[in-house]
Write a protein that binds this DNA or RNA. Structure first.
Lengths: 137, 137
DNA sequence: CGGTATCCTATTAGATACTG
DNA sequence: CAGTATCTAATAGGATACCG
């Protein structure tokens, strides 16, 4: 099994230079967690789970485009960081439900504030892109 | 024809299926912008610029660990999305100042709310990790 | 100073096949 | 259903050299 996304240089388990955790310092473990939270699939997975509890394949459909492998990897990383709760029932067929922990909910809320803001301003972004691209052509 | 594996550029310029921009839809351009904002270097660069205006190499020192190449690439993407303003003076030696646009400031604020929250809860995350790793050993 | 260009490696991601 | 294993392709990232 592939290891849960860990930056190669031991960033994830590094120490923080100062008194508090500082993502701007390259060896701070908060940088690794921030990457799990804001990463391509981490952000969308947390966002999807903010709506409730979902099974693996339900989640896969909600996070449009994610592969089994990446969803699995993402969920493991978020579970390890204490943001996602995994409830597995040993029935046949198996049933596994994923939900946010209280900490995960707090993170997802702040993340969704950002996501919704970006979505709401996409028109401006698209205009800016046209201006940028036009100036270079 | 639906390209199964869409490169980042394809996603970036894709159309949205519904009425609003929805990052959960794989072809929505908002997903690309969200990735610029929350990406490894994008998030840290926006966060650094929230403190004010900085020159290229000042920024490089603030975003600990970023290479010239990645900072350059990140700044271009954020400038294109209308989040960063680039002020180049044709002096010798050249002087270029980077700052946030009003839209970039709004994005950075919401991003920093998330970053600071994660930093402030790292102790809990680290405890969760130990529990997770311990249960598997 | 503020970058670009090039080359090369590491990491990520996807497709596919398979299992309890 | 809920994944894991394996292989391969695409992308991100780093090192170095160079330029206006």
């Amino acid at each position: 099994m592939e290891p849960i996304a860990q930056p190669a240089q031991g960033i994830e388990n590094g120490d923080c230079p100062g008194l508090a955790y500082d993502v701007f310092a390259r060896s701070c473990p908060s940088r690794g967690t921030l990457e799990h939270v804001t990463g391509r699939w981490g952000a969308l997975t947390l966002g999807a789970l903010h709506d409730g509890s979902f099974r693996f394949n339900e989640l896969r459909r909600r996070v449009d485009g994610v592969s089994e492998k990446m969803l699995s990897q993402t969920l493991h990383a978020l579970e390890r960081d204490g943001l996602v709760h995994r409830d597995a029932q040993a029935t046949n067929p198996p049933r596994v439900d994923y939900s946010l922990t209280p900490l995960g909910r707090d993170v997802a809320e702040r993340l969704l504030t950002l996501i919704r803001f970006v979505e709401g301003r996409m028109d401006e972004v698209l205009v800016a892109r046209e201006r940028y691209d036009g100036a270079r052509a």
